[in-house]
Amino acid sequence: MLDARDETAPLVQVKNLKMYFPIYSGLLRRHSGDVKAVDDVSFHIMPGETLGLVGESGCGKSTVGRAVLRLYEPTAGSVRIDGEDIPTLTPEALRRKRPTMQMVFQDPQASLNPRMTVADIIGEPLDEHTTLSRDEKLARIYELMDQVGLNRAFANRYPYAFSGGQRQRIGIARALALNPKFIVCDEPIAALDVSIQAQVVNLLEELQDRLGLTYLFISHDLSMVRHIADRVAVMYLGQIAEISPRDALYAQPLHPYAEALLSAVPEPDPSGAQQQRIILKGDVPSPANPPKGCNFCTRCPKVMDICREVEPKLQEAAPGRQVACHLINPL
């Protein structure tokens, strides 16, 4: 599959995506500003590829995932998935498009209806989008349960009877029900214990190999993203700071934020061999009132005068690597 990628077109092409949430204030609830959760984000994902999207809480990574699938109506920008522009589809066309693009949510507790059995949960997309007979539907549900490693005997149980890792498998089975091409995984392992995380990640990788899936893998766990992703986008305050192939990014991050973020991850090695930590000062500014110029200028250890005035554009810094920083010379 790797060889074929260069010739094929991207499956997902996101251009200048913006997602603003309006703030209304005062007695008359006037529109007084916007939370710029996603502010001009562009990237692409090739068929069969996994793009990791990392960043800290509030940086807009989950909002990107939701806006791409049009779970939110994006403020501006285009999202082409398999040739169709998602934000401009009519409701009926969007509904027909839904089976090809699915989502796995973070919290398997909150994203499964507690009053539905596992078979009902996995079968609901089949009810909505297919005309399978009862027997065909049940056969498909069993097939899906086998695929994600759930015991068929538990098809009539309710979500509370399952552990966190098993619930996440139910969520994955539901996402797979309609044979999607593209799945947004929004922090699928964040709520799970370490020993269970590997089980779920291995399952996602197996399914990708077997079914040729394309993933947008949203996570704050940088070591897990290194494991699963082919390329990685680092977000900060609603914008992409750097997109690079995995190995290049982890070997030498180019954007100062990517560098600080990677150095802050504690590694399970007590020998003290870990390279010098970069401790960032202060907190992330509010996305309702981002700083002028580069949005990282308030915390950047390498800040220059120009950073406080001019916003850096995301530019190609090395083959396949895009960085938004004044320190980086574009190719």
Binding site: Q197, N202, S223, R226, E267
Partner: peptide
């Protein structure tokens, strides 16, 4: 079971 941030990348966890 924890993936590493540096060094060789494991093919499978």
């Amino acid at each position: 079971t924890i993936p590493k941030l540096h060094g060789a990348r494991e093919a499978r966890l």
